[in-house]
Amino acid sequence: MNILDIEVPLIAALNGPVLLHSEYVLLADIVLATPETVFQDKPHFDFGIVPGDGVNLLWPEVIGSVRGRHFILTRQVLDARTAREWGAVNEIVPAEDLLARAREIAEGLAALPPLTSRYTRIALTQKLRRIVDEGAGYGLALEGISAAEVARSMAAQG
């Protein structure tokens, strides 16, 4: 995944709901969210296809195996507070202060020696990289097969 190829600290500043591609967020090192932010994996099951693009790997890794699978399977809506309790969000920040807080953290990191901040990101994401490298290809193949089946049934129904 090339978000992991961004080899400098990555801060996600969530200005509201994340109903798709939440893997972008879970590959960040620091996650700030407004109180209105909620998480859900919506479009995969809405379209009837396997959520195999990495959310299947990352949610169980971040919030725990049982919680993560339940989140995906039930299209659970996770509010910012619960997401913070479960370890997917670091701080809840009012919308008007969100970017200022992100910049404050970012400037602190930018003051580190350049190789140090860069290599710390790499060191911190080794395990995530292994998980993604190991599972994303297979998950996406399963998603593709399920998409072909959905397309076939839609075509059959005219």
């Binding site: 200005n15 509201g16 109903l19 932010t37 969100l98």
Partner: peptide
């Protein structure tokens, strides 16, 4: 810093 615009990050 990765952020969205308007009232959602991605919905």
């Amino acid at each position: 810093i990765l952020t969205g615009s308007g009232d959602a990050f991605m919905d």
